[in-house]
């Protein structure tokens, strides 16, 4: 096994709300290796995007802060590093792609300017060198006619092309880690597949580790090597994608997987047309309580689940689930 490029250890992030502080990320640990892809999966509000922002050092100022744990990029702890150092890491050693390609690019600057500015900021490139590098990058993300399109503005491009430009920006400095926060959610299905292929190709060339944030199980199986299922700010289940998808141990993971509709599957009583997990995600006020936060929606839950927080239970090598019932059911 290679050295992890990024190691998150016991990360706890609190945000201040009107009623008090809530741990939106609660004791989360994981690692990503060079050339591998880790998927963070879960419903909206489970802390996936907060994890990304915490790694980037972009938690909303005055609202969110890291209270415990470390974010180790190599040997450097990003949780305690200076804002200036963090700026030189962002966009350089850690790149990020966002969910909304339509609004993530600045409408008043050409895409060439937006790509080359990151090269000028981090690689010390001159205007000219950065501009021709931007053309190369556009070519690398398969934008046809890159030397012409480089001076286009975002409004002259389609959603898929804009996301390609975002990828070019994020990968311009060949970062060690790429965070992709729902990179294809806003795109057509055919374009989604193209973007995933592109990301995989570029990963093969650059060795960048990818953290893919998504709620799309299809994207997980397509892209990721390892996955972490998150629920209410906590890790619910983690492990190799193959193992977690085929032998999910946490009831929440099982629920998530059964929610995915299958074309051509036989619809019967065991497998209705669409399944759902009953109940709703707990409110922020309940985050951090010493119990299983999924218990209220779980058919397996007992009094134990409601009185103590389950620790991660190792099932096989690398596969673990934070569920009191996972051990008993094994």
């Amino acid at each position: 096994m290679t050295d992890p490029v990024l190691r998150i250890e016991n990360l706890t992030v609190e945000i201040r709300t009107r009623t008090g502080v809530a741990p939106v990320i609660d004791d989360l640990s994981f690692r990503v290796d060079t050339g591998r892809t880790l998927a963070l999966v879960g419903e909206s509000g489970c802390g996936k995007s907060m994890t990304a922002l915490a790694i980037m050092g972009l938690l909303p100022r005055g609202i969110g802060r890291i209270v415990r744990g470390s974010i180790l990029l190599g040997a450097e702890d990003l949780a305690t590093t200076s804002p200036a150092r963090m700026r030189s890491i962002r966009g350089n050693e850690i790149g990020m792609i966002f969910q909304e390609p339509m609004t993530s690019l600045n409408p008043v600057y050409s895409v060439g300017e937006q790509i080359s500015e990151v090269l000028r900021a981090h690689q010390g490139m001159g205007r000219k060198a950065a501009w021709s590098m931007a053309i190369e990058l556009l070519d690398a993300v398969h934008i046809p006619n890159p030397s012409l399109r480089v001076s286009d503005y975002p409004f002259q491009m389609s959603g898929g092309q804009r996301q390609r430009v975002m990828i070019a920006i994020a990968l311009a400095c060949r970062p060690r880690v790429l965070i992709a926060d729902e990179p294809t959610t806003a795109l057509d299905v055919t374009v989604q597949a193209q973007i995933f292929d592109l990301l995989k190709d570029l990963q093969r060339d650059t060795g960048t580790a990818i953290i893919l944030i998504t709620h799309d199980m299809g994207a997980v199986t397509e892209m990721a090597d390892e996955m972490i299922v998150m629920y209410a700010g906590r890790m619910a289940e983690a492990g190799p994608v193959e193992a977690v998808i085929s032998r999910p141990r946490h009831p929440y993971t099982r629920g998530l997987i059964s929610c995915v509709p299958h074309l051509g599957a036989i619809v019967d009583d065991d497998r209705p047309l669409l399944t759902e997990i009953p109940g709703i995600v707990p409110g922020l006020g309940q985050f951090g309580q010493d119990r299983c936060l999924f218990a209220s929606r779980c058919e397996l839950s007992d009094s134990h689940c409601r009185s103590a927080r389950p620790a991660a239970y190792a099932i096989t090598d690398g596969h673990s689930a934070a569920c009191w019932q996972a051990g008993g059911a094994a």
């Binding site: 700026r87 962002r90 993530s104 994020a170």
Partner: peptide, 16 residues
């Protein structure tokens, strides 16, 4: 807006 977050994610300074 989103593109300001992008600019921050690029590691640009506050003034920029």
């Amino acid at each position: 807006s989103d593109y300001i977050r992008t600019a921050e994610a690029k590691g640009l300074g506050n003034t920029k």
